[in-house]
Design a protein around this nucleic acid. Structure first.
Lengths: 130, 130
DNA sequence: TACAATTATGCAACATTGTTGCGTTAATAA
DNA sequence: TTATTAACGCAACAATGTTGCATAATTGTA
């Protein structure tokens, strides 16, 4: 059950997320959707796309939830992820950076599911400006 | 300028944060403050305590901002932090885990400031329940 | 192509979280 | 004890996210 439908709004939202090289918040996505659908619909579409593993959630260091296409940072449910997220303190953009293998040292009574690694700082675009 | 005052409410908030072994959100702190002060005051006290480096902010994987005393996970502004945060998906508690040194592989045109490392999973208390 | 089943949407209403302005209270130095 | 001004309470607002329900639209099937 639960047949997945590919609606206009869903396609639009997905294309917006795919077309952006940095992760976007619900607010940014809704702004780009150009009133093709309601605010609430964007929330529901994002929820569905996450469940379908077409996009995924990333929390920025300020607590804002961002969405990125899953190919941008291919995520498998490993203990040792192979990418990190760079959060620019100037332009607030969140970017995926690949090739980062980390080793963890967590007590064995903790059951690890996923690793979230975010680095704050200034991205190349903003470094140039400064 | 800016003389720091040690008010009753501020002391109470700080003691609540110190007395808890896991990080707490504003909502949780306000619930424990027992109407000694206003909701807004808690926000302002937290802001001040962060500025005074007596507590610090940690963003949970769901985007909720939590506060922990600064001794719980001594943080210096290093590129290579020495601790991580464990976010329990069952009880939602955020715990500091020390002794985690990681090496990063970030392009040199990125200017790194801080590293945020959070691991999700099930904490010892909740593993026992399951 | 038309129809039925049900997924997806819009809208209104609400909940939560966080912010701001301003008059008042209270902590601290003198 | 008093003056200074940091801190507070309250009201109002803003942003973000959620829920219920009637309606619209997609998709498999006849």
């Amino acid at each position: 059950m639960a047949i997945i439908r590919n609606t206009l709004a869903k396609k639009a939202v997905f294309e917006i997320i795919q077309g952006n090289k940095t992760a976007m918040s619900q607010t940014e996505i809704f702004a780009k959707v150009n009133n093709i659908c309601d605010r609430v619909t964007v929330y529901r579409i994002l929820e569905r796309l996450v469940k379908e593993v077409k996009i995924h959630k990333i929390v920025n260091i300020n607590g804002v939830i961002n969405y990125a296409p899953c190919d941008a940072c291919s995520h498998e449910q490993h203990v040792h992820h192979d990418h990190l997220h760079f959060s620019c303190t100037t332009c607030k953009k969140l970017t995926c950076i690949a090739d980062n293998h980390i080793e963890l040292n967590i007590p064995s009574n903790y059951q690890v599911a996923e690793v979230f690694l975010t680095v704050s700082g200034i991205c190349p675009d903003c470094v140039i400006m400064a």
